[in-house]
């Protein structure tokens, strides 16, 4: 038996049925050719989707393949549409929804460099917290540290929040890189 459809999303009615919007991590394998990133980013802005995080780098030099990891939020319908639209781009090889298809079986990590300035007591405190978060000191001066921290985005958020009162100067983050657990390819 085929269930009758849910009321569709409607741009033409405020009574539109609204499903909850959630973040999804998409892995996109693309030809590493000029303009490919502009195509992907342009698709998001052109169609009104938002990008929460985006990372891109070449992953197979011989085959000229790059991998783009995009964190975007939307309802399930919107995410499905985003994936189809990505797949439609000519240089895109493969689009995988790591959040949906491999629920809980993915590793997602981000790297952050965090600069903190201060002397005396606060400096000690920052160092202790960094230790607790397993952040490494990659640069130090008499009145500053640069910490390197890798982890889930939420862990980095927590650490940055803790550093704020202790003399946070600036943060540089890579955005999320994600991969599935186990022996298989995406």
């Amino acid at each position: 038996m085929i269930a009758p459809s849910k009321p569709p999303l409607s741009p033409y009615s405020s009574k539109a049925f609204q499903e909850e919007s959630k973040p999804h991590t998409l892995a996109v394998l693309v030809d590493n050719e000029p303009g490919v990133l502009a195509r992907v980013v342009g698709l998001f802005s052109g169609r009104g989707y938002n990008i929460e995080s985006l990372t891109v780098a070449e992953v197979a030099h011989n085959e000229l393949l790059s991998r783009i990891t995009i964190v975007t939020s939307g309802t399930l319908d919107a995410i499905e549409q985003i994936m189809h639209q990505l797949d439609r781009l000519v240089p895109v090889h493969k689009v995988t929804n790591l959040t949906l298809e491999f629920r809980g079986k993915t590793v997602a990590r981000e790297l952050a460099l965090i600069k903190v300035k201060g002397r005396g007591q606060v400096r000690q405190e920052a160092l202790q917290l960094a230790d607790a978060f397993r952040a490494r000191v990659v640069d130090a001066s008499t009145e500053s540290f640069v910490f390197e921290l890798t982890g889930a985005a939420s862990k980095i958020n927590d650490f940055v929040d803790l550093m704020r009162p202790l003399g946070l100067v600036e943060v540089s983050r890579t955005g999320v890189a994600a991969i599935t657990r186990g022996p298989n390819e995406m």
Binding site: A3, S5, P8, H84, D87
Partner: peptide
């Protein structure tokens, strides 16, 4: 494929 379920859900 992007045309399917874009605005109207189908069975």
């Amino acid at each position: 494929p992007s045309s399917i379920n874009k605005t109207v859900k189908v069975e």
